[in-house]
Amino acid sequence: MSTETISAAAATVQSRFLTRVIRLDAVASGALGVLLLGAGWALDGPLGLSSTLSAGAGAFLVLWSAALLMIGRRPAVRRTAVREIVAINLAWVVASLGALFVLELTALGVGFVIVQAVAVGLFAELQLTGLRR
């Protein structure tokens, strides 16, 4: 076996658990994205999220979901791709928690932001677990 083949094999991880977690992340992200895009106008009052913010976040999440689905459908995933997914998920968590201090959210809005941030953080942790397996 050549060094190049070994390096290529080490650069990917073949894990059914990891691909399932990435796909589940894609489904959850896509569902939230569609909700924010389609009903963001209705969330302004109950959550305190502006329709502009909802639309922007929703559009990002729909695109993010598509990217995750493309990555998660492969039997072997590049380790760098998983690390990038984790980094983006963690950036989302930080941005979400930062939004608690910047936005004028209702109590329900604060709960919504915290719950989705915890869910995204959990996806990041599960993806790191899949990477280590």
Rank of each mutant, 00 (worst) to 15 (best):
M1V: 09
M1R: 07
T5E: 14
T5S: 12
I6R: 13
S7T: 07
A8T: 12
A9V: 06
A10D: 08
T12G: 00
V13K: 09
R16Y: 04
F17S: 02
L18A: 01
L18V: 01
T19D: 02
R20F: 04
V21H: 03
V21I: 13
I22K: 02
I22Q: 05
L24S: 11
L24I: 10
D25I: 01
A28I: 14
S29Y: 00
S29H: 00
G30D: 06
G33W: 03
G33E: 02
V34T: 11
L35H: 03
L36K: 01
L37K: 05
G38N: 07
G38Q: 07
G40M: 10
W41S: 12
W41D: 11
W41C: 04
A42Y: 12
L43F: 09
L43T: 11
L43G: 10
L43E: 09
G45P: 00
P46Q: 03
L47M: 15
L49N: 00
L49I: 00
L53P: 07
G58W: 12
G58E: 09
G58T: 11
G58P: 12
A59M: 12
A59G: 15
V62W: 08
V62N: 08
V62H: 06
W64Q: 06
S65V: 08
A67D: 04
A67M: 11
A67Y: 12
L68E: 10
I71Y: 10
I71C: 09
I71H: 09
G72Y: 10
G72D: 10
G72R: 09
R73K: 14
R74V: 08
P75D: 15
P75S: 14
V77D: 10
V77I: 15
R78C: 07
R78L: 14
R83T: 05
R83N: 11
V86D: 00
A87N: 00
I88C: 08
W92S: 02
V93W: 07
V93A: 10
S96R: 01
L97H: 01
G98E: 03
G98A: 08
A99T: 03
L100W: 01
F101N: 01
V102Y: 02
V102N: 00
E104Q: 05
L108Q: 03
G109T: 05
G111C: 02
G111N: 05
V113L: 13
V113S: 07
I114P: 07
I114D: 05
A117D: 03
A117T: 03
V118K: 05
V118F: 09
A119C: 08
V120E: 00
V120M: 02
G121R: 02
L122M: 06
L122W: 11
F123L: 00
A124E: 03
Q127S: 09
Q127W: 09
L128Q: 15
T129K: 14
T129S: 09
L131N: 12
R132S: 14
R132E: 14
R133Q: 15
